[in-house]
Amino acid sequence: MRKTLLIVVVLLAVFSLSTCSRGDDDAYEIVFIPKLVGIPWFTAMENGFEDYAAEIGDLKISVLGAPDTDPAAQARILEDAISQEPDAIVVVPNDTAVLEPIMARGREAGILMVSQEAPGIQNADMDIEFLIAERYGADMMELFVREAGSEGGYAIMVGGLTVTSHNQRADMAVKHQEENYPGLYQVTSRLEGSESVEDAQNRTLELAAAYDDLVGMIYIGSLGAIGGSQATKSLNRDDIAIVGGSVPSQAKSYLEEGSIDANYISNPYRIGRDSAYLVRHLLSGGTIADVGDLPEYGTPAIDGTVVTFHAPSEVTAENADMFGF
């Protein structure tokens, strides 16, 4: 009796969720696996994929993703996505090395395996790079120098100390500084907390107290600059430059009042559209060599299986609304 009750509950739970609509077999099925779901960046990118698919008509996008950036969780999701046997999988790896063997298995199964933001990946049919780490680091540092000058101490905060792509960009920014601005130096080793307003705010307040020579902060991660600007505002320290990469619609009011000095970020919606275009191009028989012009970012650089364009641009109070996220 009770057993059946439990069974009914589970049945209901599963069936109420199995609202998947399969069917139209002529459409290409694409699974998109972001680093994690539930943050504005990837939500905007999903929208880019879906809008492009709706316009073009023969693509069907589904999104699978973990609630956090755990590489092991992502590996398991990718394995499940391969079992789903779609036409293509686009994955943004949390840790490329973890996914390599699984990517290989997907290719063996005849699925077009595409990666995004995975420099050096071996087992992808195509890797889409919308950001050149050297250029990102250099641009970020140039913006920083514009706002803070080329003398004094600074610190870099990343989203998490274990986030590889953030660490790479931070390394490149430091490299650019060491080569061009010897007057600048890091007051402390890398910090973490750029994905939390509170952490960014608290660490910035502490740094401002601990180091008199601090002229500014660089935040890689979408909430760092928000927290940093709140910290400098409460200290009335306009002299500390806050340079980050926050969501434009959120950063806008801070940029207007000048508490965020510079904001530098890609437009994930447009990246999503270009990625969908690239995947469809390959699925419909095209090759990487003849991708032509992307609908959003023009002609990409092509090197083997790597398609590269540089999407990040500076967000100002004036152009913030044009980003659409």
């Binding site: 539930g38 943050i39 609630p67 307003v197 509170e198 909430l223 928000i226 927290g227 709140q230």
Partner: peptide
């Protein structure tokens, strides 16, 4: 209190 402090409400914070 946390919303007052950060002026941002994110479901995963």
């Amino acid at each position: 209190v946390q919303a007052l402090d950060t002026q941002t409400v994110a479901p995963n914070a």
